[in-house]
């Protein structure tokens, strides 16, 4: 039973990750990423990390991927640039990939394989519950936790400031061609708030849920 669940999760995670980079349509890539994240949550569940599994689904598969879906669905299939955005990317990218592979291989061979023949660590009752993770976050890792939440707060404030700044050009550019008078400004008036209010939910949820 455990083995079956593990292999289902593992195949889902690997297949999803491969599909993310293999698929051409960005929307399918996003969906593949969702499959990957949900499979990963299943693997966390097998490791007795229930809270992490739930947080993975709620925050990543839920909040963060929604933004990706929004972007992919609204923007649609973007034409791939025919030039290289970064010069020498074609040669640099495989080099870095091989370096990463070597690094990971060393790390896995060095540490992970020693546990292969053992039963794994013994897990005490209540391991991975929200209460235990809350204690760890607020006692042992308090400074790191607070630093991360400050970072997210700064990011959220920055996003609000940037979004607030960007609302001014559309109204001014919309009123510029409308030299006929106030008629176009009235037309632009109700449109601008709806545009910002429909985009506004895109930023806060991820920051708020990760921060909380």
């Amino acid at each position: 039973m455990v083995q079956v669940a593990f292999f289902v999760g593992a195949i889902g995670a690997t297949g999803g990750a491969l599909a993310v980079i293999a698929l051409r349509n960005p929307f399918y890539s996003v969906l593949a990423l969702v499959v990957h994240l949900v499979s990963l949550a299943g693997l966390f569940l097998l490791l007795y990390a229930q809270f992490v599994a739930a947080a993975q689904v709620v925050v990543y598969a839920g909040a963060v991927m929604v933004l990706y879906v929004f972007v992919a669905a609204y923007v649609g299939a973007v034409e791939e640039p025919i030039w290289e955005p970064i010069p020498g990317q074609r040669f640099l990218a495989p080099l870095l990939a091989v370096a990463l592979l070597v690094e990971l291989t060393i790390a896995i061979l060095g540490t992970g394989l020693t546990a292969l023949d053992s039963e794994g660590p013994t897990v005490h009752a209540g391991f991975g519950t929200p209460a235990e993770i809350g204690n760890l976050l607020l006692e042992r890792f308090l400074v790191v936790f607070e630093a991360a939440s400050m970072l997210l707060l700064i990011a959220a404030v920055g996003a609000v400031v940037l979004a607030g700044r960007r609302t001014t050009p559309p109204t001014s550019s919309a009123s510029r061609p409308g030299s006929a008078g106030s008629g176009s400004e009235v037309a632009a008036g109700p449109h601008a708030p709806t545009a910002t209010s429909s985009l506004a939910p895109a930023d806060p949820p991820s920051a708020a849920e990760q921060g909380g």
Binding site: Q50, A54, A55, V57, G62, T129
Partner: peptide
């Protein structure tokens, strides 16, 4: 009776969203 309790509800709620979105898209 899962220890994560109500988070289970929210986790499935966020998957349900994909049902609506996929259906529409």
């Amino acid at each position: 009776d899962v220890p994560i309790g109500i988070l289970y509800f929210f986790a499935f709620g966020s998957i349900a969203f994909y049902g609506l979105l996929l259906g529409g898209w």
